[in-house]
């Protein structure tokens, strides 16, 4: 399964990764090799096999709804790249017309 450069660019865009052209070429070759290797899965007849979503017995886990202290605001913000007035400051997401 060989990927072309346009496909690798599409994946990088989907994954929100800015990559230089040299890197895209390198990833194209490396990812193609791994996908080529993964092709061997197609030998398997899995029509009647259910997928494994989890290895655990699936059931909804419940717990009592008890109030407890939440994280401290200052502490929570201590790792933020940018803050203002006790809040995260983030880039504009909507253009104002």
């Amino acid at each position: 399964m060989a990927l072309d450069l346009a496909e690798v660019e599409r994946i990088a865009r989907l994954a929100h990764l800015a990559l230089a052209t040299d890197d895209l070429i390198r990833y194209r070759d490396q990812l193609s090799a791994v996908l080529e290797y993964a092709q061997r899965l197609q030998e398997l007849d899995t029509d009647a096999i259910p997928p494994t979503a989890t290895i655990l017995p699936t059931h909804t886990v419940m717990r009592p709804d008890c109030p407890r202290p939440s994280s401290d605001r200052e502490e929570s913000l201590s790792n933020a790249p940018d803050t203002a007035e006790g809040m995260y400051r983030v880039p504009t997401i909507l253009e104002v017309f």
Binding site: L41, Q42, T46, P51, T52
Partner: peptide, 9 residues
């Protein structure tokens, strides 16, 4: 999905 099925095997 193919991989999840093979995981079952």
């Amino acid at each position: 999905i193919k991989a999840q099925k093979a995981r079952t095997l």
